[in-house]
Design a binder for these strands. Structure first.
Length: 326
DNA sequence: AAGACGAAAGTGGTTGA
DNA sequence: TCAACAACTTTCGTCTT
């Protein structure tokens, strides 16, 4: 509200532009004829300074509808508070009891009342976490953020994951299960849905639970919420792997090209998509003259040289790729 | 010395009786 | 519940660059 704006000049200037209410400050007091009328914006009253008559009340406050605490904020003219934030347990929208020293009538409040409000504020703060659900949610979302940032998961996806977790919690699916595993499952689902899959291994590395448990939680959640995910496609891993290997986009496109042919020939089914992706990247890196060793490629895809080797040999054979000539 | 290759044995998960 | 099974990993010795 305008009370927070310290600069009175600015407020008055806005007032002048429009006629507000029946009376204006320049009018005379109908009671005593005094020309000293003033507006009390806090109470929305136009009063005669001489006799105290309220001439006009409930006029519309034409002051700025944005709030500002300093000149920088005034320049920005921000109209809203914090945006909804699904990443925190109360979506960043919970209320606080203010710390003002005046009551709604503008009178200062007694020290007795002040201590009372201090207590109220304290209780109110604590009540945000009053039930175990909220506490668990706060804990879970904290953990989710930690894992997501460790895995460099984009904000939009971790937000999706928090929405999924909220749903899980709302349906009461967490009961009796590990929160951490459920968080892992939420992230896993969110990543796959956004076509930037992370493997269960990658997630469990950053979480405090095993891949097995996250996998189990994921299957459970998927069944309960009716989430059906298409199996991860190898090409979805390519951009992440190539960039972690510092390969050019040319290599990336080439690898995706190879994978397209491979999936047409149905070479991908039944195989770990990360291995296929790694093999395609290996071939592509050699072909583009940016060779990375099998070991390096395998590492980035968190698999082994042997598997990369086996896959890439299959690909070469089936797609008639000759590794010798460039 | 590093990387590529292949054989062999071991592991964890799925499937079908 | 158990055995069979395919995919994958680990380990290791050999060959090539």
């Amino acid at each position: 509200m305008s009370t927070e704006v310290e600069n009175e000049e600015e407020v008055k200037e806005v007032k002048k532009r429009e006629h507000v209410g029946e009376y204006e400050e320049s009018d005379e007091c109908p009671e005593c004829g005094s020309q000293k009328l003033s507006r009390d914006y806090e109470r929305a009253e136009l009063v005669c300074e001489k006799c105290g008559l309220v001439i006009d009340d409930e006029f519309i406050d034409q002051g700025p509808d944005w709030r500002a605490f300093d000149s920088e904020e005034r320049d920005k003219k921000i109209r809203v508070g914090a945006p909804m934030d699904v990443m925190t347990h109360d979506k960043g929208l919970s209320t606080n009891i203010g710390t003002g020293t005046r009551d709604s009538n503008g009178n200062s409040i007694s020290s007795n009342k002040k201590t009372k409000f201090y207590r109220l504020r304290k209780w109110h703060r604590q009540s945000k976490f009053s039930d175990s659900k909220e506490r668990d949610l706060a804990l879970a979302l904290g953990e989710l953020n930690r894992i997501a940032s460790q895995l460099n998961i984009p904000k939009s996806i971790s937000e999706d994951a928090s929405m999924i977790y909220r749903k899980i919690a709302d349906e009461g699916l967490v009961k009796g299960r590990s929160i951490e595993a459920m968080v892992g499952a939420s992230l896993y689902i969110a990543c796959r849905q956004n076509k930037i899959p992370r493997t269960l291994d990658e997630i469990s590395d950053s979480a405090r639970v095993s891949r097995k448990e996250i996998g189990r939680a994921y299957r459970y959640v998927a069944a309960e919420l009716g989430i059906m995910l298409k199996p991860a496609q190898p090409d979805e891993y390519v951009p992440r792997f190539t960039s972690s290997l510092d390969l050019s986009t040319q290599v990336q496109f080439k690898a995706e090209e190879i994978l397209k042919q491979a999936s047409e020939k149905e070479l991908t089914s039944g195989r770990d998509p990360t291995s296929i992706a790694a093999a395609a990247i290996y071939i592509s890196s050699v072909k583009c003259g940016e060779k990375r060793s099998q070991k390096k490629v395998a590492e980035s895809a968190s698999t082994t040289e042997v598997t990369v080797r086996n896959r890439y040999q299959e690909l070469c054979e089936e797609l008639d790729i000759d590794m010798e000539v460039n």
